[in-house]
Design a protein around this nucleic acid. Structure first.
Lengths: 225, 225
DNA sequence: TCCCCGCATTTTGTTGACAATCTGGTTCCC
DNA sequence: GGGAACCAGATTGTCAACAAAATGCGGGGA
């Protein structure tokens, strides 16, 4: 087991904290796309040296969350609709791989957890709680990724997800989407429980294709975040 | 077209050049795994400030090519065999996606180019030139990726490839591997030429499964690079 | 009125020095 | 003799100041 990050140990004192905070700001939409990220301002706002900000911006650029032009500074990266589609296609095959691995490795405990989350999702639909549903949705995908024990795919998926959370909110408001989504998720979990990798992968891929289709069809809401 | 890096423009004056050089050093194996990367030394060796090296190391860490521990510096990342397998699995699904897209988008010109490369590969086998074959191999994959016009997948694949080039050389020496490899590649190109996405994806995935299998079965050669 | 040129401002890129931390060997005490 | 504290060397993390570059504005000329 190649030492993954020991959860308890301290990482880069300031640098890592700043990175996480900034990243969270961007993915949560607190920083608007195309917003300029001036190093001095950020440093002052976060009570930290400019060097830390700089290093952080480099990392975020590598993550694809910001763009940095040579002598013109950094801006929050604008993800176009076409690119969001690309990203979702990519996520689809990666999560397909993860579902496949999960089907191979799933323990009864893991399956039980997934079924529990499915039940929660159903409850959220009945309670007409789209945000709660969305949250349970995320938990289910996370559980599948965890079960797969595939660090490489997990890392890539996390990176891609961060780039498109902004588009996510569109799907959770489409009427009737939740019910079909739940059906799709149930099929995925069934395949994993049955230990059928092919079916698990196929189910995951059709699920994410549906999501992509929903995003493409849903209307633009430019400044709506 | 969301402005990709305009090839001709100048990027970060020093930073980008240093990054590319260092990356090439690691990928090409001129820096051994686990080798310590001391900022001051690198800065002196490359005639550049420590800040540039620092920024470069941060980028390489995000690429997964180096590991940086808090106050203990950076080292070239050691990729275990198990991890190489993970990476190849991931590449398999990503290149599968790319092959699928290529099948949809392929123009007659693109297909002609691929067939030309296939012919070259055949010639290299007959000439008993494994390095030339390996090179043509890379060119074919690159041509497929180019045809697919899928920037997201292309970026991820490039990142993964960089991490495992070190293992690549094992496969090209396995006797008889070249001929089956050529067969697999021919099937991929046939499917792309026929505009059959499903078959293209399947062919690419079986091909990369074979590669993964070959790597796993081939013997360790610890210090051999 | 419109366009082009030069200047001041803003912001990034770079350098150097200093502080904090870790490593490894040494010494002192039991 | 063994183990723990300690000290010197090395290396990273941080900061402040300087230099280079780009942007935007205002003035001058056609």
């Amino acid at each position: 087991m190649p030492g993954n990050a020991p959860a308890g140990s301290r990482a880069e004192p300031t640098g890592d904290a700043v990175y996480r905070a900034m990243r969270e700001d961007i993915v949560a939409g607190r920083r608007m796309p195309n917003e300029r990220l001036v190093e001095a301002d950020l440093a002052a706002a976060m009570h930290v040296g400019r060097a830390a900000i700089r290093s952080c911006l480099v990392r975020l650029e590598q993550d694809g969350l910001v763009v940095r032009e040579p002598n013109r500074g950094a801006r929050v990266r604008m993800v176009t609709e076409a690119e969001a589609t690309e990203i979702l296609q990519t996520r689809a095959v990666l999560e397909g791989l993860v579902a496949r691995e999960a089907a191979v490795r799933a323990t009864p405990d893991a399956v039980a957890e997934m079924r529990g989350i499915l039940a929660d999702m159903r409850a959220r639909i009945d309670a007409d709680d789209p945000l709660g549903y969305s949250d349970a949705n995320a938990r289910l995908h996370a559980a599948i990724v965890r079960t797969a024990e595939h660090r490489t795919a997990a890392r890539l998926i996390a990176g891609l997800k961060a780039q498109v959370v902004r588009f996510q909110y569109r799907t959770i408001l489409v009427p009737g989407r939740s019910r079909s989504s739940l059906r799709e998720h149930t099929r995925i979990v069934d395949a994993i429980a049955a230990g059928d990798p092919d079916r698990a992968e196929a189910a995951m891929r059709t699920h994410l294709s549906q999501v992509a289709g929903t995003i493409k069809e849903s209307p633009h809401t430019p400044g709506a975040f």
